[in-house]
């Protein structure tokens, strides 16, 4: 594998995160005896789209929920150094940090079924706003997320709208708090492909106009290729590779990243067989010693069974946690 990225994917300079709008240091989430999220570091620049990728059970969703202070029962935040816009924030269960807002996979389920969508948006607006301005703002947000006739939409209930429309409402709610960072957990996975394309466009447009950073959790590398600036690949609770998107696709270094990219069916290049990663993500209690990816890895060394590699960001091609990267 050549060191330089092939010319087909000219790599833009990695956006240096000078003063990150979100900095996460050593985030750990315990589930039972094990760590579902294990010492995760992450920083996002304003306006950056950062994709968090991995299979189910890698800890992607728990990472988002921990950042929001909304961990489910049974999961505990062990440590979290969180800085938002230069201000430190201590983890508090049930208290989302100011400046963060989240969009979920199933928008229809995340909305209150017995409250009009307009009121739900209005409730998410800053509390000091007078009632009339509140309604006006909510209608403006409904228009901003691309729904026509905002005045009529204000009084609609979630069940009267489609999944795609409810995801737009959820985005409007998230925007109501004027977030600096938007967390989106698989927001298009449940949607049809044409609706997915529209929601992705909407998220990027919203990000353009507000300058918010976007942390986008997905398992679909096609979506990553389309929207990401930088990508963090997560496996068994840890980041195993982090790179600008063009670099990651042109020259993946971690065997897991390569497996994920190769197993994605491509519309433009059908292959007789899809590459796949053997085995599956181990349960938290059944993780192997050493590198957690070793049992599924075709490049494992003897050392990989003894020691766990750490994310090394000193090289020129992004950061990788692997003793034998490509």
């Amino acid at each position: 594998m050549p060191d330089a990225a092939p010319a087909a994917f000219p790599a833009p300079a990695a956006p240096a995160v000078v003063s990150p709008v979100l900095a996460v240091r050593d985030l750990s989430v315990a589930v039972g005896e094990g760590l579902a999220v294990d010492g995760l570091d992450l920083s996002l620049a304003a306006g950056e789209t950062h994709c968090l990728v991995g299979e189910s059970g890698c800890g992607k969703s728990l990472t988002c929920l921990a950042l929001m202070g909304l961990l489910p029962a049974g999961a505990r935040c062990r440590s979290a150094g969180l800085t938002i816009d230069g201000r430190d924030w201590a983890y508090r269960q049930g208290r989302p940090p100011p400046g963060l807002a989240m969009i979920y996979q199933d928008a229809t389920a995340s909305l209150d079924p017995v409250m009009t969508v307009g009121r739900q948006i209005a409730e998410a607006l800053p509390p000091d706003l007078p009632a009339r301005a509140r309604r006006r703002e909510a209608e403006a947000l409904i228009a901003q997320v691309g729904l026509s006739n905002p005045r009529a939409r204000f009084g609609a209930y979630p069940h009267e709208l489609s999944g795609g429309m409810n995801q737009r409402i959820a985005i409007a709610m998230a925007l109501a708090g004027r977030p600096r960072v938007l967390l989106a957990d698989e927001p298009t996975t449940a949607l049809d492909v044409t609706v997915q394309a529209q929601i992705l466009d909407l998220l990027l447009a919203v990000q353009n106009s507000t300058g918010a950073a976007l942390l986008f959790v997905t398992h679909d590398l096609g979506v990553v290729a389309q929207i990401a600036d930088r990508v963090s690949v997560m496996y068994c609770g840890s980041i195993v590779e982090r790179a600008p998107v063009a670099t990651l696709f042109a020259a993946p270094r971690h065997p897991y990243t390569r497996g994920l990219i190769d197993s994605l069916p491509q519309i433009s290049r059908p292959a007789a067989r899809l590459a796949s990663i053997p085995g599956r993500v181990p349960a938290i209690g059944a993780r192997p010693p050493g590198c957690r990816f070793r049992p599924r890895c075709d490049r494992a060394l003897a050392r990989c069974g003894r020691e766990a590699p750490v994310l090394d960001g000193t090289g020129p091609r992004g950061a990788v946690a692997c003793f034998n990267p490509t």
Binding site: V193, L202, G222, A225, Q226, A228, Q266
Partner: peptide, 17 residues
């Protein structure tokens, strides 16, 4: 339209809305 709406195979120029 279905084919256009597919996510990209590989990263290209950033697609704006």
């Amino acid at each position: 339209a279905l084919i256009r709406a597919l996510p990209a195979d590989r990263p290209g120029p950033r697609r704006t809305a």
